[in-house]
């Protein structure tokens, strides 16, 4: 049974480390089923903010609420049954098969000594199938290409059957078709989602709202067409960019011109 899409509320979250403020007073409300893109230059605090959502980094102050429950006051498996995180893959040395990796997604739903039943196997098989990696089920995870690994990790998140998903650059290693496919998949699930994305054209096409971070603070949040303006690119990214609405869909399209302050090549 899939968890219900939940309301996610980030309330005045600060993260301090080594005398620096990595996240500075971020407040963000995500409605059930809404997809919010997280954008911003390198080092803006996107990953750190995401880590406070899936309980990897405790906020120095502020709260993260899922359906009104403070995620930091609940047990880890409570959150893992409701929220899945798709992270950058880290290298391993253990020859886990793709099936093993995806089956890990069932862990939050299990107790000690519980075996995998037919329902678990069906859920894992469906997740593999949905991400187009069924043929790799018994291949060693470590030998896959970057894009294949990314799809396997999304499949693991699906096997968790979450109502909320946190994705950190899920399209990083994917080719064009699989980029679109992955984001369409997340949209089609109807889950609440927070997605860190570098590609703002993708963000504009797939996110209900975009939240832009700079130096740890929210500098803009709203519908793509409100947020993605030449002024934002100049202020936050320090580049000149044109933004035009797509003639058919109306989705804002970003075209980069030059780096600000340098003469054109």
């Amino acid at each position: 049974m899939t968890a219900r899409a939940a309301a996610l509320a980030v309330q005045d979250v600060w993260v301090r480390a080594g005398g620096r403020d990595l996240v500075r007073g971020v407040t963000l409300d995500v409605a059930p089923g809404e997809v919010v893109g997280l954008a911003g230059p390198n080092g803006a605090g996107k990953t750190t903010l995401l880590r406070t959502l899936y309980r990897a980094r405790r906020p120095s102050s502020g709260r993260v609420l899922l359906d009104g429950q403070d995620v930091w006051r609940m047990p880890g498996h409570w959150l893992a049954r409701r929220m899945a995180a798709v992270l950058q893959e880290t290298a391993g040395d253990f020859d886990l098969t793709v099936y093993d990796v995806v089956a890990m997604g069932r862990t939050p739903h299990k107790r000690a000594f519980d075996g995998d039943d037919a329902a678990d196997r069906a859920i894992v098989a469906a997740a593999l199938d949905r991400l187009d990696v069924t043929g790799l089920a018994y291949a060693p995870f470590d030998r896959l290409s970057g894009g294949e690994k990314q799809r396997v990790l999304i499949a693991r998140a699906l096997a968790q059957q979450p109502g909320t998903m946190v994705l950190d650059e899920p399209t990083n290693h994917l080719d064009l078709r699989h980029q679109l496919d992955a984001l369409e998949l997340v949209r089609g699930l109807g889950v609440t989602a927070v997605v860190a994305l570098h590609d703002l054209n993708l963000a504009a096409a797939f996110c209900d709202r975009i939240c832009v971070l700079d130096a740890g603070a929210v500098v803009a949040v709203g519908a793509p067409r409100e947020v993605l303006t030449p002024a934002l690119f100049a202020d936050v990214y320090r580049v000149d960019a044109d933004v035009a609405a797509h003639p058919e869909t109306g989705v804002p399209q970003v075209t980069l011109r030059t780096v600000r302050g340098e003469p054109p090549a």
Partner: peptide, 19 residues
């Protein structure tokens, strides 16, 4: 934690996926 009807993407489909 109950799933509302009509959200069955991650559930086994009519023709279940096979390994």
């Amino acid at each position: 934690r109950t799933a509302p009807a009509g959200r069955a993407e991650a559930e086994p489909l009519a023709e279940p996926a096979r390994l």
